[in-house]
Amino acid sequence: MKPTVALRLCVCVMPLLAGVMALPAHAQDAATAQGHDARAWLLRIHEAALQRNYQGTLVVSNGVQTSTSRVQHFADGGQQVERIDWLDGEARSMIRHNDVVHTLWPNAKLALIEQREPRATFPALFSGGEKRVLEWYELHPLGLDRVAGLPAEVVLLKARDALRFSQRLWAERRTGLLLRADVLAANGQLMESVSFTEVSIGIRSQAEQAMAVLRHLPGYRVIRNQALPTALEQEGWVLSKPPAGFQEVTCARRSLDVMASDSSPIVLQTIFADGLTHISLFIEPFDPKRHQAEAVTTLGATSTLATRRGDHWVTVVGDVPLETLKKFVQALSRKR
């Protein structure tokens, strides 16, 4: 939704500089000074996504698929309102008011309501705590550029190990709002990119208008997906040695298929994060009708690994190398 500090760029990072303007001497000094407080720089990006009012068109590309959406965000009197309308594929809208998320499919007349802890999605940055980002990524200022017609400062968050991908970020110079984020392989190859193609920052709040559709849903089938907070160990599982840097953020039991009947199997979902990216671990009862041989897929930066573990089926998904997901499965064991 994605998918940190020594000031020496290795050879594999040099191709990332293409298209980014070199800093003039006075700007280099400023960037160096800024590098001494990298955490504050990153926090400014994250807070801009939460505290600013903005709306724009967002394009996500993974080299195989491209999707476009219209994004609105309003911080209104301590309330967070976000609306995303997908502009391609099946008509769909997501409207979030604080931690309550409504997903609407107008053609199918279906509304899904979930209460969930907000996770960092673009243009927010941190997933599980900003203080930990710089433990696992090195921050390198790369220069100045423009995105969606706006001047931007560019930095590279270079992964310190092979367990995670590097990210290249463009932040609007005046406000710090993230305008673009690239996920990069170890050799510098672009794996996935999310970017505003146009954006307006500092607009008047339109929170009420964004949520207006929720007041009247004639003919809609409304489904509420209830999640029961829990913990892996409480459910009889142990993760003996998770990949370095990833800590459990949330764990909950929820219906596997909210569109089906109340007898739908229950899935246990646990989310782990290293501060910048997160991984979802799903555990459900093994069903020979649905679960066949081990499955491994990679699409852009996102890898998925699904395998059987005794009487259970385990699926791990994240914007990390496949080997990282394998380490999660290897570390998982049944306690009882």
Rank of each mutant, 00 (worst) to 15 (best):
K2M: 01
V13W: 08
L16S: 04
V20C: 02
M21H: 15
L23H: 08
P24H: 01
A27I: 13
Q28C: 14
T32W: 15
A33T: 14
Q34I: 12
Q34L: 15
H36E: 15
D37T: 14
A38V: 00
R39T: 14
L42V: 14
R44T: 11
A49G: 15
A49I: 11
Q51F: 07
Q51P: 04
N53P: 04
Y54G: 04
Q55R: 09
V59Q: 00
V60F: 05
G63V: 08
V64S: 13
T68K: 11
V71W: 10
V71Y: 02
A75K: 02
E82W: 00
D85N: 13
D85A: 13
W86D: 05
G89F: 02
S93N: 04
R96T: 02
H97V: 14
N98M: 06
V101P: 01
W105K: 11
P106L: 11
A124V: 05
F126T: 06
G128S: 11
E130P: 05
E130A: 10
L134N: 08
W136L: 15
Y137G: 05
L139E: 00
P141R: 06
L142T: 05
L144K: 08
D145Y: 00
L150W: 04
P151T: 08
E153V: 10
V154I: 05
L157S: 01
L157C: 01
A159V: 06
A159D: 07
R160S: 12
D161L: 03
A162D: 13
A162R: 12
R168T: 02
E172F: 13
T175S: 14
L177F: 02
L177Q: 00
L179I: 08
R180E: 07
A186V: 10
N187K: 06
G188A: 10
Q189I: 00
V194F: 01
S195F: 00
S195E: 07
S195D: 03
M211F: 00
R215F: 15
G219F: 06
G219D: 06
I223K: 13
R224E: 05
Q226V: 09
L232N: 05
V238Y: 11
A244F: 13
A244N: 12
G245M: 04
V249I: 01
T250K: 00
A252I: 15
A252R: 10
A252V: 15
R254I: 11
V258P: 12
M259I: 15
D262Y: 06
D262R: 12
P265R: 03
I266M: 11
I266Q: 12
D274T: 01
I279H: 05
S280N: 01
F282R: 00
F282V: 02
E284T: 07
E284K: 02
Q292I: 05
V296T: 07
T297M: 10
L299P: 02
A301G: 00
S303K: 11
S303E: 09
R309D: 15
R309P: 11
D311I: 12
W313A: 06
T315R: 03
V316M: 10
F328M: 09
V329M: 10
R334E: 14
K335I: 05
